[in-house]
Nucleic acid binder design. Sequence first.
DNA 1: TTTCTGATTAGACATCCGTCTATGTACGAC
DNA 2: GTCGTACATAGACGGATGTCTAATCAGAAA
Lengths: 123, 123
Amino acid sequence: MSKKELPLLQPADPAAPCCSPLAREPLSGAEAATLAPVFKALADPVRLRLFSLIASSAGGQACVCDLTVAFEVSQPTISHHLRVLREAGLVDCERRGTWVYYWLLPNALARLSALLTPAAAAA
Amino acid sequence: MSKKELPLLQPADPAAPCCSPLAREPLSGAEAATLAPVFKALADPVRLRLFSLIASSAGGQACVCDLTVAFEVSQPTISHHLRVLREAGLVDCERRGTWVYYWLLPNALARLSALLTPAAAAA
DNA sequence: TTTCTGATTAGACATCCGTCTATGTACGAC
DNA sequence: GTCGTACATAGACGGATGTCTAATCAGAAA
């Protein structure tokens, strides 16, 4: 395979948003150290499903009780994964009476999306 | 050189730009099991920088020798991280003479971007 | 051929991670 | 108050991960 064509990677027009920020300029060590934990938080199948399940729940939030029954791991394990998501800044939670509700922090998703998406920097 | 392609998760419904696919519908266990390794491959600061460095290199590719000098870890460690990126379907490589060149597999970035970005199909 | 350089592989090692059980805490009902 | 339920925390355990050194492989040049 020669480097005949690498369509999405060529900065053909320097004026246009050629590619995602990740591909436009090398990440600094500091940036990488900030971003990697966010990817790491989503790097587990259970957490990825938890994140998606919270995001797609009615009202944009879900209580732990509903999340727990959707998986086959123990309740403390769910609690652990939720904490990882929380500490990564991906979700937040609040106790309301008996139940604890989790929701997405939209900035987190937007940050990752902006990092990976070509046109995102123009917005 | 590895050429494994991970299946593409794409609800592909341009008529519903409400939110990212991740937030539109809960991920299945199988989808999560497919996607989590890609996030995991980017979940290390060195690998994240390697990925970005390759992507932003002139011609969209970089040789290992250039990548190695950009970090303070040993050359075998760089080689290890490059393999992780390769096995996640994020990059591919080829030996040309003395040097081995790496480049991004564009679908990988597009896959993640589509997962996280609202109305990704419109891009 | 031999030698040198670039890169991968092998193996070891310390640390991290995901999971569990057991326990603790918060809240509502009685 | 006590009891029961929802959730978090503590600690332990096995397996995965990131890093290193040493060895090996691949190609170019003398």
